[in-house]
């Protein structure tokens, strides 16, 4: 009886480890699901949307401008960010520096200068769709390609808004 329980426990552990490893490999090398939080990608993505992302393009690194990507935040390594690639390396970006916070408090619109720049090699320029409420490359500059984890393929939840992106 005791022997029976031990063998069952062993086979249970074996199966658990096996499936954990298969899950890890699938999520790490093929694709995974991501829950969106925050307003920075409105009106394309809203909070609590679930996205299907693929990690295969990571090996070719053939990201194009317009792709929505998940990347490790360059200002906080424990956080992931979901943004749209605006320009890849070698392309030119024209961007407006965000309004300084003091300017809003005095209710006086400040004309901020447009800056033109080239995205350096091995980097991409990312911006949120919600330009007024997004902390992105306009704050921390172009991010290295190595920070990108995956590319968003489609939205899977809520089901009524199921669509490719």
């Amino acid at each position: 009886m005791k022997y029976n329980i031990l063998t069952r426990l062993r086979s249970l552990m074996r199966i658990t480890i096996q499936y954990a490893c298969i899950t890890h490999c699938t999520f790490e090398y093929l694709g995974d699901f991501v829950l969106c939080k925050g307003p920075s990608m409105e009106p394309t993505l809203f909070s609590d949307n679930v996205l299907l992302t693929e990690r295969i393009s990571k090996y070719w690194r053939n990201y194009q401008s317009g792709d929505i990507i998940i990347a490790v935040s360059p200002v906080n390594a424990d956080q992931y960010i979901c943004k749209r690639i605006v320009a890849v390396s070698g392309e030119r970006i024209v961007t407006q520096k965000p309004h300084p916070i003091e300017a809003e408090s005095v209710q006086k619109p400040v004309k901020t200068a447009m800056t033109t720049d080239y995205v350096p090699r091995g980097c991409v320029w990312i911006e949120g769709d919600n330009k007024g409420n997004s902390s992105d490359s306009r704050y921390y500059g172009p991010i290295p390609l190595g920070l990108i984890r995956s590319r968003v393929v489609c939205r899977v939840w809520p089901l009524s808004q199921l669509s490719g992106l």
């Binding site: 480890i17 096996q18 954990a20 490893c21 298969i22 890890h24 490999c25 790490e28 090398y29």
Partner: peptide, 13 residues
């Protein structure tokens, strides 16, 4: 099929 995911997971983690 059993060993490959196990090995990759080991190398990753």
């Amino acid at each position: 099929l059993y060993a490959l995911p196990l090995g990759i997971t080991f190398l990753d983690c």
